[in-house]
Amino acid sequence: MKSVAVEVLRYRPETEAEPSFDVFDVPYEDNWMILDAINHIKDQVDGTLSYRWACRMGVCGSCGMMVNGKPVLTCATYVEDVLPGPVRVEPLRGFPVVRDLVTDIQDFMVKLQRVKPWIIREEEKPLAEGEYLQTPEELEDYKQYSMCINCMLCYAACPIYELDPEFIGPAAIALAQRYNLDSRDQGREERMDVLSQHDGMWGCTFVGDCSVVCPKKVDPAGAIQRYKLDATVDWFQSVLMPWRKR
């Protein structure tokens, strides 16, 4: 049977001060994913290995790790695509490590809340008036940005987030854009107040790696540049036409 060396970052805070690497020789079959290899280690070799995973089909967004230095969903990356090995598996970059491959994602959860990723209405219409209808074109406007699964690969890829942890980050801005572009939403102004701060969209210098690594083709970098354009148009309107309210 074919096998590959897998170097896994281990960090057990109760016994070691610094993380280190354990190397496992993992037998693999055709079409195994990196996650299958890690599951093999956990099930057959060392049950103490800690990591997150759930769906195995690129939907839950919990198995993101650095594989050979690149942020990927381990359930969507073939072992055969990273051969000959050794394959180095590390926790997502830019996040504090809790244990082994498990990161502390609290920072992202807080930032996600700050952009109010839900439909905001100035006034809800009574239930009796029925649902808010939307045309297929209106759905198309934001659909791409709604595909985000909060896997945080874009944060791990973003050099700005690594340098400046205050930066609100790619997924949060893309998700804000998802609601701004929704015909049912009226929260654009509220979100702009959050994102036009210095830790908001202006922190981005359009490196673009977030869009490269996104497993769902959300294109957060594109969303952020669109947001900058919106903010700039807002600014010129507020200066040139102060009487006009958007």
């Binding site: 102004e189 702009m192 107040d193 036009s196 701060q197 210095h198 202006w202 900058k228 354009l229 903010a231 700039t232 807002d234 600014w235 010129f236 507020s238």
Partner: peptide, 16 residues
């Protein structure tokens, strides 16, 4: 609300 950030102007000139 007037946003005090100068970034929109600078970014507009940058992208222009």
């Amino acid at each position: 609300m007037v946003r005090r950030s100068r970034e929109p102007v600078l970014w507009a000139m940058f992208s222009g």
